[in-house]
Amino acid sequence: MRNILGKGLSSWGMMVLLLIVPLIFYYTGNAFYLDLATRLVILAIAAVGLNFVLGFGGLISFGHAAFLGLGAYAVGIPAYHEIYGGWDALASTNGFFHFGLAIGVGALFALVTGAISLKVKGVHFIMITMAFAQMIYYLVMSIEEYGGDDGLVIDMRSEFPLISLDDPIQFFLIAFASLALIMWLVHRMVNSRFGMVLRGSKGNESRMISIGYPTYRYRLVAYVISGAICGYAGALLGNFTAFISPEMMDWSRSGNLMFMVILGGVATIFGPVWGAIAFIVLEEILSGFTVYWHLPFGLMLVLVVMFSRGGISSLLRGKEDK
């Protein structure tokens, strides 16, 4: 796993460009591209979180959009009650409270659903993570107070001392710093003793059990960490769009996250960021041509799966095995 940091220099260069180029655009009057980059960075955080379990743990979760959505609602709901009353215990615009809640709710949902879904493997796991995400989707849709399926505008962003999320530059820098920090943390974790157990369980589970690891516990902890990371990304996303809706948790969103992780390079630190860039750029270019941009996008996905040699799973191992 010498190459675990991705592709070396080019990846570091990518990170530097990802930081500088949007700022240049902003100061030359193209504020739109800064917004785009902020969204990209937030999605990249979620993809890094997903990659922790999917890439390093081999757990194919098709429900990670739920964590993003929960994180966003953890910002929207307290802000809503602060402004419109009710539920005093929750009402707040304090950013630390919002982000703490988002991380906590993400972790808790991961703990509860992971405890059940990690008991099974393969297709079962894929379908069950999907079903639990859909459960949250229908749950928020059924709550009229928070707008049901119309969603809810967040009138006030999370408040922090000294910084303001209303300022696009500050927001972008916060998001970028979060991404860098989380990537560093994930890098430390996958190379730690915990990470070795997680990766070993992906490589050969029965072997890990026979040398004495209760793999279920380690996977559950990894799943909780992943949920917490995505909850955090969700809190950023809620603040960024200033709008929450069940649509954020639609399962096609989970599919998009998987797309980023897998095409970017599974089980690498920089891979998910590459994937997020590829996704945003594709979306931007294709949707510029046609409103039906899902058609070429979907077609590309089908063709990549069908004609990549040995399939996606060889991409999964490929780069590292050579």
Binding site: S192, R193, M196, G200, I211
Partner: peptide, 21 residues
């Protein structure tokens, strides 16, 4: 090393790189 590590009781050690143990 993973097999040796299994004897430590638990491996919930998240930060120090395994290869520096």
């Amino acid at each position: 090393a993973l097999a040796l590590q299994a004897r430590d009781g638990h491996s919930f050690r998240f930060f120090k790189p395994a290869r520096s143990v």
